[in-house]
């Protein structure tokens, strides 16, 4: 399993997709963090005390997952589907014929590279965000235990999303299909579903288990949660993490029993 993990880590480091995605992640999260930080100071000034300055930094710092989780998800999915697309499953399974081990190595490598994405994303949301907060006169509040915990949990969420991506890529080995599914679901379908889920109490109870909602629960804050009006019974942070992990396990189990066992021709 260790050998398989090292092999999978090398597969990622020897191709370009990881740093291309990490670079876009940094830019996009940094842009959003800066924007929300700038808007936040205006909000604090205009609200006449309704919005306290302490509520702004968590919103800024959580942009890493709020707008950035799609990147580790895509990264993981591309890492898995590239094996099918370029038929590199042949040398992979020749070197490690026990396919379960390969899958284990992929999950481990996804988790480790996911942490890298978490660090890059946090560097953008906290690095750029805190700078803009400082410039606009809102205290970045980086010393607070709550904010530090939020940042750490955001990085964990990013790592989990990379694993969900790896698992999704095994379940849906067609690279084009998986890109379409990821973008359609994360950018369009899920935000809509989360909004719609808030109309009734029973749908809201189900909506908490949507992957994006679970991420917000894990991280503890998000611009979406604010827009949606902060669901009354949001999951605990660790429950959010378990839900995300649950998606990964579910996808891995189905993919591992179907596409992963197929003949490699």
């Amino acid at each position: 399993m260790i050998r398989s993990l090292r092999s999978e880590l090398r597969k990622i480091s020897t191709t370009r997709s990881w740093w291309v995605l990490a670079l876009i992640l940094f830019g996009w999260v940094g842009l959003n963090a800066a924007g929300i930080a700038a808007l936040g100071s205006v909000l604090v000034d205009q609200s006449g005390g309704m919005v306290g300055p302490e509520s702004i930094p968590p919103l800024v710092y959580s942009t890493v997952t709020a707008v950035g989780y799609v990147f580790p998800l895509l990264f993981g999915a591309l890492a898995s589907t590239a094996e099918f697309r370029h038929q590199t499953l042949t040398p992979t399974f020749l070197a490690t014929p026990r396919r379960g081990r390969v899958l284990g190595g992929k999950v481990g490598a996804g988790l480790i590279w996911g942490v890298v994405f978490g660090v890059v994303g946090v560097a953008a949301s906290v690095g750029v965000g805190a700078l803009v907060l400082q410039l606009t006169g809102v205290h970045p509040d980086l010393g607070s235990a709550d904010n530090l915990a939020l940042i750490a949990r955001a990085a964990i969420a990013m790592a989990l999303w990379a694993v969900v991506g790896v698992a999704l890529g095994v379940l849906l080995p067609n690279q084009v299909a998986v890109i379409v599914v990821v973008l359609a679901f994360t950018q369009f379908l899920e935000p809509l579903l989360r909004l719609a889920a808030n109309f009734w109490e029973w749908t809201a109870a189900i909506g908490r288990f949507l992957p994006g909602a679970a991420t917000d629960a894990l991280v503890g804050s998000s611009i979406y949660a604010l827009i949606a009006g902060g669901a009354a019974d949001a999951l605990e942070w660790w429950q959010g993490g378990l839900v995300l992990g649950g998606y990964a396990v579910l996808f891995l189990a189905i993919g591992g029993l179907t596409t992963w066992r197929r003949d490699v021709t």
Partner: peptide, 27 residues
Amino acid sequence: GTALEAASFHPGRSGRDHLRVAAAAAG
């Protein structure tokens, strides 16, 4: 040792890295 027809390589990876990936898997 195996060399199969339609040998499959990731086009973006160097020949050396292709072998290093397999070498890591096989120790």
